[in-house]
Design a protein around this nucleic acid. Structure first.
Lengths: 345, 345
DNA sequence: CTGTTAGCGCGTTCAC
DNA sequence: GTGAACGCGCTAACAG
């Protein structure tokens, strides 16, 4: 209630020591005699002293904080990612803060061009809207690891899932269990250079090729990756009278919407239409029926991302490449999770 | 590639001006002649200068950043909360960072006792594990607004939902549509002083009293608020042979688990058992069948929370009370959302 | 084990 | 419209 915030010197003065000693007590980086320590602690408590972290950050040049920058806070995929990273970092007394860009290219560029990242020891950037070219224009001295399913410039470390293999696995399973008209919901033209959708769509195409068939073009349903779009995709398919006996949804979120759409249309899953998603969200076990999906190896991805980030932070000179500028690109293997929306093989 | 990060003085030197002028160009707080401005901008670009925000923060004593501290990143309720807040703040060029405590009392206390909050202009704290007594012991000079459904000390601003009224509404609807044995999943003894569960359970009790009945005690099923627990609650109910013709789940997450459990047991919803949840998550519209639920007035909650935070930040002296220490406690009204898991009245 | 000195890189204050 | 000096609060480096 005195109004002014006490500083370290204030604590030092009332404890009868120097500011350095107070600092030592607080950081524990140097030995302090028990007697001195307790005098300092009492003085700090008496004054209601609170360490000023911004000053520490400026002086130390470190913040012990890693940032995760995601397009949306409210997409379960990113929430789960954040939770996993936070758990890993907390184990080593480091902190995670999460920031949101908004998914558009413009919003991501704006977020990225800001000097905010200087506040962190490293940044994990989940890219969705930006292109490889945009990323190439990016200049930051902060250790940066990219997460995301599109093509990325070689000069950044990058962790992603095996989208093609996962989608191929899912589609192959649908073919092997008797489906012949497999819609890909959230599919995209395989040409565009960005995003997970072309890769997963490619997996769908390849699985058909593997089976010696060719998917009908009207079974490729473009859609943004949200719940509403999944439901709408089914409505559209039904309204257009397009026959299908299975759906490969390129994300679990889309798949959940698809299940809602199929239920609404009175279609039985998996008897009439099988469904497989991609991402293995925590909630996917609890859809009705329980969603079969592709697990992208979440744990692997977060441990690799953190490993790469620490490697960049420690050795800014070269990295895995020995100085050419190329860095590691990790691909986490995908695996099929069998539940109730697809038949057993 | 020179290795050393340029500072403002470096930029100033190569632009042939003083550091102050560089600062003025960057902040835009004072007029700078166009010619000087462009010289500074070119010098900054040439050197690859990046503003050091930690220094600015120390000097300015402000960070233009608000923190949201939540128990879990990966619970959709908090993800949606974060997204709403971020949208509101972005509109005024302020930033939101989200941090996670872990939901236990110990983890929350640890998170809270740290000086980290000094890094923010204000903190929105989502309380789950801590008691009112714990919060009373809290001493921080950072503007703080509490979010959470338990009792909170009067000296903090606090925003919450109308849990009792919402639960009463839901239960009353179930009674009015013919259900007589309404289980409350996630229910709790109304005595304990903390948490949303007792309040929502109380609403369930009161609705029965309103109807002149008394719920059977075996219909109160205690459970943590997650998907697995919702499903397990149904399994237990069924295994124990307890008859029920409706479920009021105290969160949508629990309700989603309940729907999975009912589907697994071959129970038809809403024909055999009606279900109503609480929270109105974005995903609740897409369960099968679509979940009827209680909407807690999300938008209202976030605007109020931000309004209170700004009020604390601006007038640290008094607040709504005029200096007695008591502050505003806002209760957002609840409303029933009719979908497919409950019959129309 | 403890103290002294000297900044970290900005922005406020006051001058011109 | 621009500059000089100082200090925000803390800690690395070197004493002793």
């Amino acid at each position: 209630m005195t109004g002014v915030k006490p500083t370290m010197s204030d604590v030092a003065r009332t404890a009868g020591v120097s500011a350095m000693t107070v600092s030592n007590v607080l950081t524990g980086r140097r030995h302090v005699s028990p007697a001195t320590r307790s005098r300092v602690e009492q003085a700090a408590a008496a004054l209601g002293y609170e360490l000023n972290l911004t000053a520490r950050h400026l002086r130390a040049g470190r913040t012990d904080t890693v940032a995760l920058v995601v397009p949306h806070f409210d997409h379960p995929y990113f929430g789960e990612l954040a939770a996993r990273l936070a758990a890993l970092l907390a184990a080593e007394d480091r902190h995670l803060v999460v920031e949101q860009t908004g998914a558009s290219r413009e919003a991501e560029l704006a977020a990225v061009s800001q000097a905010r990242w200087q506040l962190y020891d490293g940044v994990l950037l989940s890219v969705v809207g930006m292109s490889a070219a945009d990323l190439d224009d990016l200049h930051t001295s902060v250790p940066l690891v990219l997460l995301g399913e599109q093509e990325m410039p070689a000069r950044y470390d990058h962790v992603r899932m095996d989208n093609v293999a996962g989608a191929r696995l899912a589609t192959a399973h649908l073919l092997a269990t008797g489906s012949r008209r497999i819609a890909v919901v959230g599919g995209a033209d395989p040409d565009p250079a960005s995003g997970m959708k072309p890769a997963r769509t490619l997996g769908w195409t390849l699985a058909h090729a593997d089976a010696g068939t060719d998917p009908a073009p009207e079974l490729l349903v473009r859609a943004p990756a949200d719940l509403t779009s999944g439901r709408d995709a089914v409505r559209r398919l039904v309204a257009d009278g397009i026959e299908f006996d299975a759906v490969f949804a390129v994300t679990d979120t889309l798949a959940t919407g698809v299940l809602a759409g199929l239920a609404e249309a009175g279609v039985r899953v998996p008897d009439d239409v099988q469904v497989i998603g991609f991402d293995n969200l925590a909630s996917s076990e609890f859809t009705v029926p329980a969603l079969s999906t592709v697990d992208p190896g979440h744990e692997r991805m977060v441990t690799e991302a953190l490993r790469l980030l620490d490697a960049v932070a420690r050795g800014p000179a070269g990295g895995a490449d020995g100085g050419t500028g190329a860095r590691e690109h990790v691909i986490s293997p995908a695996r099929l999770v069998h539940r109730a929306t697809a038949r057993a093989r």
